[in-house]
Design a protein around this nucleic acid. Structure first.
Length: 410
RNA sequence: GGACAGGUGGCCGAGAGGCUGAAGGCGCUCGCCUGCUAAGCGAGUAUGGGGUAAUAAAGCUCCAUCGCGGGUUCGAAUCCCGCCCUGUCCGCCA
């Protein structure tokens, strides 16, 4: 949610920030500002009528208490009251119109968000070729059984791969706890409010699974539940950081035929997600911090990657700026997205009404940020492909063995 | 799934048609006071929006807000209807 009141004082920079998205949201902002003006224009008449009604009702009350006859005053007030009931629906209608426009607006883009996807740096040494993850995993990934049970883009993970996942998750959570993130296993089924509050609705409706008999959705990321953790609150402790571990569900509508091999793009995967609530002036630094932790994780796993400043027209509706980490996949000879971290500034905090007291003073909205620590299926792919051996096995990094991973796959 | 009990300010909690934007307490802020701390005393302290002001603040003023939406009424935290949520117990269940 944007702060239209603040924007109306100086609309042009905000309009320009939205125009960079090239999605027509700048025009919708103009329309929203116009609707706001119309609403403010009818306000004086309604409020004058309400004031008259309130004063009249008070006088009637006083009269009755002293035993005076108030029947004339009551009759006079009926007309005033009727006028109020005429104007109120008009105001409601304008408010609804404004609300509709306002909730359709995405976050303002950050000036430092890139115009085009821009690789900022690269780490590690790319392997020139290699088998792909399905070949390396062999029977440990069963796509056929997955599709039999659940359809395309579902898999069974088996055997050592299971312990590799659990070690990966545990190692990550321990690392994050060391960075001040409280581990959380959040609800996965969430209400519409939670999705709206995080900006996934109405923006990405076609990506989200919905239950038939209950007003609940399957989250595509624990970001939804983590952001909602402090909804409606005035937080007394900021910054606050959480590491959520949960399965994630995505319909992948519109991705037909894309990444159909293996577990790169599946409907269900597990993920460790970082989420931060911070003071507004700290959010840019926090964003860098989340990115640094992501890099620390991939370096710890010894996987070559690059960091990309994502193009503004590719940002989700809640993000002002986003960095992805793309891991090198030898089988594809490409960098592929494995993490994503966004600064959503006060966009989610406004929708979810999450505030703090700056310097103990009046409540103000916090800034929120999210970042992938480890999306397990893609991390497994990167691990297998980058640590494969001549004989078709996979050597597992020592850091994961310390948390129970096998020394070697295959 | 069933039965009860509830949703009031930052928190707790009273109020049951007009004298209530809301008692009292906690917390917080400022001041006084005790050599420090604690205690004590006094004052202040909900949110959002409009107007006024210089698209600065304070102040003043008006409107709205007691879970949400509707209704009754000159007037609703209070009465009526619908919904949502929370808690407890029972049933079922990993």
């Amino acid at each position: 949610m944007l702060d239209l009141r603040a924007i109306s004082r100086d609309p042009e920079p905000a309009i320009a920030a939205l125009a960079r998205r090239k999605d027509g949201s700048d025009d919708r902002l103009r329309a929203a500002l116009a609707a706001r003006e119309r609403l403010n224009a009818i306000r004086p008449e309604l409020e004058a009528a309400q004031a008259e009604r309130n004063a009249g009702a008070k006088a009637i009350g006083d009269a009755k208490r002293t035993g005076a006859d108030a029947s004339e005053a009551i009759a006079a007030m009926q007309a005033v009251s009727a006028r109020v009931k005429e104007l109120e629906p008009e105001k409601d209608r304008l408010e609804e119109e404004l609300n509709q426009l306002a909730t359709s607006l995405p976050n303002l883009t950050d000036p430092s968000a890139a115009d085009e996807d821009t690789a900022l740096r690269e780490w590690g040494e790319r392997a020139e070729s290699g088998k792909d993850h399905l070949e390396l995993a062999g029977a440990m990934i069963d796509m056929e059984a997955g599709s039999k049970t659940s359809g395309s883009r579902f898999a069974y993970l088996k055997g050592d791969l299971v312990f590799l996942e659990l070690a990966l998750v545990r190692w990550t959570l321990e690392k994050l706890r060391g960075h001040g993130f409280e581990p959380v296993i959040p609800p996965v089924l969430v209400k519409e409010d939670a999705l709206f509050g995080t900006g996934f609705l109405p923006d990405t409706e076609q990506q989200i699974y919905r239950l038939a008999d209950d007003p609940l959705y399957l989250s595509g990321t624990s970001e939804v539940a983590l952001a909602s953790l402090h909804a409606g609150q005035i937080m007394d402790e900021v910054p606050r950081r959480y590491a959520g571990f949960s399965p994630c569900f995505r319909r992948e509508a519109g991705a037909a035929g894309k990444d159909t091999r293996g577990i790169f793009r599946v409907h269900q995967f597990d993920k460790v997600e970082m989420f931060s609530f911070v003071e507004p002036q700290d959010s840019a630094a926090e964003h860098d911090r989340l990115l640094a932790i992501e890099e620390e994780i991939w370096q710890g796993l010894q996987i070559p990657y690059r960091v990309v400043n994502i193009a503004v027209d590719d940002l989700g509706s809640s993000a002002a700026k986003k960095y992805d980490i793309e891991a090198w996949l030898p089988s594809q000879q490409k960098f592929r997205e494995v993490t994503s971290t966004s600064n959503t500034t006060d966009f989610q905090a406004r929708r979810l009404d999450i505030r703090y007291r700056p310097g103990g003073g009046k409540p103000a909205h916090v800034h929120t940020l999210n970042g992938t620590a480890v999306a397990v299926s893609r991390a497994l792919i990167a691990l297998m492909e980058n640590h494969q051996t001549e004989d078709g096995g996979v050597e597992i990094p020592q850091v994961l063995q310390d948390w129970g991973a096998p020394a070697r796959l295959g």
